[in-house]
Amino acid sequence: MKRTVITIGLGLACGVAALSRATGRIENEQEKQTHIDTARTFNRSSALLALSVLADSAMEHYRGSFDNPAMYTPLVVSTLSLFAGLHGGRDSHPRRHAVRDSVFIAAALAGVVGTGFHLYNITKRPGRLSWHNLFYAAPIGAPMALLLSGALGAVAERLRDEPAHEPELLGMPAGQALALLVSAGLAGTLGEVGLLHFRGAFQNPAMYAPIVVAPVASLLLANTAICAPRERWFTRLWLRVTTALGFIGVGFHARGIARNRGGWRNWSQNLFNGPPLPAPPSFSALAIAGLAAQRLRETER
């Protein structure tokens, strides 16, 4: 009888240990899948930003007659970043892709250099950093979208290299670092939008929407990063609103183009004179990345 009891006890102990190991493996796989899904979402966000940059720079640099050969650079780099982001969005492997990573780093560097070129374009004009030059010279904030596209893609590749258990970026928990990155990106994008909508004198009350929605999204993500990890339903809701705002903004910009003389029948002129059609999706891209960072942050301890 005593031997039977001991045998049963040992069997139960072995069963509990096996169950514990199986549970640990399942949890590890779930954590691994969460941070790979986050990396893929950041790749898709990078691709959407690259598409916005490609369309916008193609139009604006065509209007500038590609006066400087360097004006072809953002078209080439954003195209490569677009394809790299789309490829990464489909890739579920937990390893950094060397080619994609190189493309994203090149895009970020091109964004920095482009910002320098645009700043030079502004300051060489009479009046230098005047309101007129900020409104009508090379848009100083435009290359920053390419920088963000490269940055989002590059951090996605580094996230893939992290172990499944509590991945880190820049010495911080990955969710925290990504939330801070997206928060800064939203704040930076807001500056360009505010400048252009101010130039448009806020003729339509809807032009205030990104000025109100984006700063709140940025602050909520900063709060997510700074405070202890927990579920934040309001942050997720606000980021979804920000995502929708970007796509709705395309409709408002299309309406602004249609209101010019000749409307869409005169598209070859009105696309350049109306509000920039490719610009609003940048908010959607960053909000999508913010949602992914929020999900990852909620799993951190």
Score class of each variant (00 low, 15 high):
H197G: 05
G256V: 02
G116I: 07
G116P: 03
L51Y: 02
Q33P: 07
G24S: 11
G175K: 10
A50P: 01
R96Q: 15
R125C: 02
A151F: 03
G88Y: 03
A187V: 04
L180Y: 15
N266G: 03
L146G: 05
H35K: 14
S218E: 06
G191K: 11
A289G: 08
I248M: 09
G274C: 07
I105P: 05
V241I: 13
A293I: 01
P275I: 13
R40N: 06
D56H: 13
L146C: 02
A22I: 04
H118A: 08
P205W: 14
P210S: 02
L152G: 01
R240A: 08
G263Q: 09
H165A: 11
G153Q: 05
L296E: 10
G290D: 03
L271V: 14
A142Q: 15
A177N: 09
R95H: 14
G11K: 09
P126N: 12
L237Y: 13
F272Q: 06
P278F: 13
G111V: 08
C14F: 13
T38A: 14
L178W: 11
P69Y: 08
A108S: 15
Q33S: 15
E29S: 13
I288M: 11
A184D: 05
F198P: 04
V77L: 11
G200E: 11
H87R: 14
G194E: 01
R3W: 07
L296F: 13
A138R: 01
A138N: 05
A108D: 00
L86G: 00
V77D: 06
V216Y: 01
A39S: 14
